[in-house]
Structure formats: C-alpha cells, structure tokens
C-alpha cells in the first residue's frame, strides 16, 4: 500500500470515528477531546513543522475562551460570532507576541512566550469582567447560524466536530502547502534558507499567528462546550499540557497531537476517582513514552508501517 493511500485510510477512519463518537462515549467528553486535539494540532504546527517551542500557548486558548464567554454571555451575540471573536483576539495576540518572540530562538523564545502568557494570566485575574478566581460561569451555547439550537449535547457535538474538521484540515493543508515546505526548510537549516533568499522571520511569524489563531478557535469552542471559561485555561499548566500531548502522540506527525490529546484527556477523566494521583500517573506515562518511543505513538506506528509495508526507511 502506498503512503498516500495509507494516509487516506487514516483520514477516513478518523472522520468515521468522529461521526460515531457521541454514541460511543459521553458527548461532552468527546467534545473536550476534540477541542484539546485541535489545540495540540495547532501547537504542533509550530513545534513540529517550524521547530519553535512555545511555552505560552495557554494564552491563546484561554484568551479566546474568555472573549467568547463575554461576547455570548454579556453581549448575547450569536454563537458563531462569539467563536469568531475569540479566534480573532487570539490571532491578534499571536501577531503581537509572535513579532516579539521570534527575534529569539530556543530557550529564550520559550521564555518570552511564557512571559507573555503570564501577562495574560495576570490580566484575566485582575480585570473586572472575567470573574476573577471564579471564571466565567453559565455561558449560553445559543444557536448555530441562528437556526440550530445547541441545547442538546449531540447537536453541540456535531457543531464542534465540523469546526474541528475545518481547523484540522487547515493545519494539515498548511503543512502540505508551499508555505509548509519553506517552513520545513527553515526548521532543517535556517541559515541556508536565509541564503536562498527567504526572510525566515516572516515565515516563522506566519506559522506563529496561524498556530495562535487555531489555538484560539479551540479555546472558543471549549468555552461553548463546557459553558464556562476558567483560570486553568490561561494557566501555564495548560501550556505544559499541550507540550505533553504533542510529544506523547508524536511531534511532527499530522495525527499525533490528536492521539496525544485523546490519551491525556482519557487518563484525566477515567482516573479522576484516584484524585491527585492522576498527575503522578500522567507524569509516569509521559516519562515512559518519551524514554521508550521518542517519536511518540503515531511517530512509532508510522515508522513501523514504513518498515513493514512500504520498505522505505523510517
């Protein structure tokens, strides 16, 4: 079987699984997985394809969640406008943070993004209309496109699923676009890309903004799904968690971050009974994964498939 055929098969499986999900598991759980999968995929666009490790992506997820919450609850705007507003704010934040952060690389880049995220966290705690420690509760889901009332979990699920597919499609298209090729070249050898006439900073910035925008979309959807926005969405734990999901699933693979998100959310959900031990267990799983298969779950599976079916090198 050829590589594109395998990819199509994986796609079909994913779409079908997504369609069936609300009848297989608790819909809110499935929606939560979708939101975090989109978040991790957006993060992976930056880490896996541009080679930039951001440690402040919670800022985009969280800021968008709050903006969506405010537009829907306080101003009573239609759902899709709330989602768009959240995404737009995350995009703008990405433009500002990105323009400053991409001047540095490696650990300095990570620290600048972390600094900005802490700034956002502080603002959310202090501003009067974010609900402070309590967060924003009781965000109405409203109606999608003014027609479809998002009151039932299954209807809401399909609304979120369509948005997820659109975001996910855009990410994988960006990866396999002329832009994606330049991005990979920059990740592989930045001075060489520069010497070929590419203004690498502009490409990195676009990757950063795209990643921020789609993280924002994930945050907005999350606010609609859970009907609240809380401080945990802007907390740096969230920025760490997305690194974990991406590495677990497989950095630089299209499906990896979603698999990682599924795994982390499942662990957190089904281990909730054991209380605070869940953090310890997730940590142990993470360490075991990174030690045993550094390419992540999907990365290892891909290498295995290439070795056994295609005969190419992993």
């Amino acid at each position: 079987m050829s590589a594109p055929a395998l990819r199509r098969l994986a796609w079909a499986a994913m779409v079908l699984l997504g369609l069936a999900a609300p009848y297989l598991v608790y819909p809110v759980f499935a929606m939560n997985v979708l939101c975090l999968a989109l978040f991790a995929s957006a993060f992976n666009l930056l880490l896996g394809y541009a080679g930039l490790l951001s440690f402040g992506h919670a800022a985009f997820l969280g800021a968008a969640a709050y903006v969506t919450g405010i537009t829907l609850r306080t101003w009573g705007l239609p759902t899709e406008l709330g989602v768009l507003a959240g995404t737009a704010v995350a995009t703008l934040l990405g433009l500002v943070f990105g323009a400053l952060a991409i001047r540095r690389s490696g650990i300095y880049f990570a620290m600048i993004t972390l600094g900005f995220a802490q700034l956002v966290y502080f603002l959310v705690v202090q501003l009067p209309w974010t609900g402070g420690e309590d967060g924003l509760q009781g965000i109405p889901r409203g109606k999608a496109l003014g027609l479809l009332a998002l009151d039932g979990p299954v209807t809401t699920y399909y609304f979120v699923y369509v948005a997820f597919l659109a975001g996910f499609w855009l990410i994988q298209r960006a990866i396999h676009s002329p832009f994606g090729h330049v991005l990979r070249a920059i990740r592989e050898n930045e001075p060489r890309a520069l010497s070929l006439g590419y203004d690498v900073a502009h490409y990195k910035l676009l990757a950063f903004v795209l990643s921020a925008a789609l993280s924002g979309l994930a945050g907005s959807l999350k606010a609609v799904v859970l009907q609240f926005a809380s401080l945990s969405d802007v907390h740096w734990h969230r920025s760490g968690e997305v690194v974990l999901m991406t590495l677990l699933g497989g950095m630089g693979t299209v499906l990896g971050p979603s698999v990682g998100a599924l795994l982390v959310v499942t662990l957190e959900n089904y281990l909730a009974d054991v209380g605070s031990w869940v953090t310890v267990i997730t940590g142990a799983v993470f360490v075991a994964c990174v030690l045993a298969f550094r390419r992540g779950i999907v990365g290892e599976v891909r290498a295995l498939v290439r070795r056994s079916f295609i005969g190419g090198k992993p």
Partner: peptide, 26 residues
C-alpha cells in the same frame, strides 16, 4: 536540508519566484 529529498532540496530554491511561498492554503 537533511530531512528533505534531493528533489525537494532543489525545489525549495526554485519555489520562491513562484510567489506562493506564503500560501498556506494551497
């Protein structure tokens, strides 16, 4: 560019004059 094929390496250089290098939707 170590992880790219020989063809892709050369194509990166040829790609810029197309003017689509920022087109992430293409």
């Amino acid at each position: 560019f170590p992880a790219l094929t020989a063809l892709e390496n050369v194509r990166i250089a040829l790609q810029r004059p197309l003017g689509t290098s920022f087109h992430f939707w293409r």
